[in-house]
Simulated assay, not measured.
Amino acid sequence: MLKPNQLVKVRPLKQILHTLDTEGCLDGLPFMPEMIEYCEKIFRVASKVEKTCVDNPTMYMAEFRNNDVYFLEDLRCSGLFHDGCQRACRIFWKESWLEPVSGIKSEITEDSSIHSDEMDKQKLRTRQTDEIYFCQSTWLRNATKPLSAKEKIFKLFTDVKIGTYNIIEALKLLLFPLLRKLVRKIRDQHPRGNLTKTPEEVLNLQPGEVVEVRSFDEIITTLDKRGKNKGLLFDPEMKIFCGKRFKVRNRLEKMILERNGKMIEVKNSVILEGVTCECYFAFGGCPRKEFQYWREIWLKRVN
């Protein structure tokens, strides 16, 4: 088993292709064309992925088949081969695609590129149908198995043992969801507005610009009774970012939905650097650190 901060080298593409089935997967997990650029390069292990949330068709927590998946640093999908999807999902790596190395990071001189005709030959798929995309996110249901509440608790103890969480973080991931469930029986904690038609604002924010998240009271005035602005949910976890400043990572204009594999267009929205879902309200937690999505009307530009 690999350990956090351990140096590993992504195996050459030809070796990885030999591990894949006719669907381009290993144990149901796809190796995507966007991962080719990392072949034969060295990275540090961020953590072992003991579990992950899966939104297909509804949200649940699951374990990967063979339980041998890792995150490397903060490597994310560029969406280059999936028509420019801008979700920037964190990439999952099977242990068979990695090899431990010793010493410090060295310069890689070998060419790990692959021609498009060879990619087609090796069946690195990007679509299931003309409308439905094929990637690690949309195929998670096939690469995982759901966890029971008891298994989630066991997984959390394992996460502490291998260093993914410390004791304090683990206790929060056990207690916060239970407390939230108890409180929601008394009163609804979800941010909700009173509008039937929600407003929009066009800031045309660009990567690198600094913005400040508006106050919670200001954001509430932009939401409908479901807690959404133009269909985009303001998640309860996002409240902790109100009043804070961040850099814009990228614009969010199109993204593939995990639950159905379809590409949707998004308007007047951005992703902020380092602002990810910490899953403190998910029982046992989830390490995916998916980016939060921000309407421009929830932000203000900082000069």
Rank of each mutant, 00 (worst) to 15 (best):
V45C: 09
A46M: 07
S47M: 13
K48G: 02
K48V: 06
K48H: 03
V49T: 02
E50N: 15
T52W: 10
C53Y: 00
C53W: 02
D55E: 08
D55M: 00
M61R: 03
E63F: 05
F64W: 06
F64C: 12
D68E: 14
D68M: 06
V69T: 08
L72V: 03
L75Q: 09
R76P: 01
C77T: 01
C77G: 10
S78W: 00
S78E: 03
F81P: 03
H82K: 03
D83K: 07
D83R: 05
G84K: 01
Q86V: 00
R87Y: 05
A88R: 14
A88I: 06
A88E: 14
I91E: 13
W93P: 09
W93G: 11
W93Q: 10
W97S: 09
W97R: 03
W97Y: 11
W97F: 15
L98F: 01
L98G: 03
P100R: 09
V101Y: 01
V101K: 14
G103P: 00
S106K: 14
E107D: 11
T109K: 09
E110N: 03
E110G: 05
E110Q: 06
D111V: 00
D111L: 06
D111P: 03
S112D: 06
S113E: 10
S113D: 11
I114V: 15
D117N: 08
E118L: 04
E118P: 02
K123I: 04
Q128G: 05
Q128I: 13
I132L: 12
F134H: 07
C135Y: 04
T138I: 11
T138M: 11
W139P: 03
W139D: 08
N142W: 10
T144C: 15
K145Q: 12
K145I: 02
P146D: 02
P146I: 02
K150I: 07
E151Q: 15
K152S: 14
K152G: 10
K152V: 05
I153F: 10
I153K: 14
F154N: 15
K155Y: 01
F157I: 09
F157R: 14
D159G: 05
K161H: 06
K161E: 12
K161W: 07
I162C: 10
I162E: 12
G163I: 00
G163Y: 00
T164A: 13
Y165K: 04
Y165H: 11
N166C: 07
N166P: 04
I167W: 13
I167T: 13
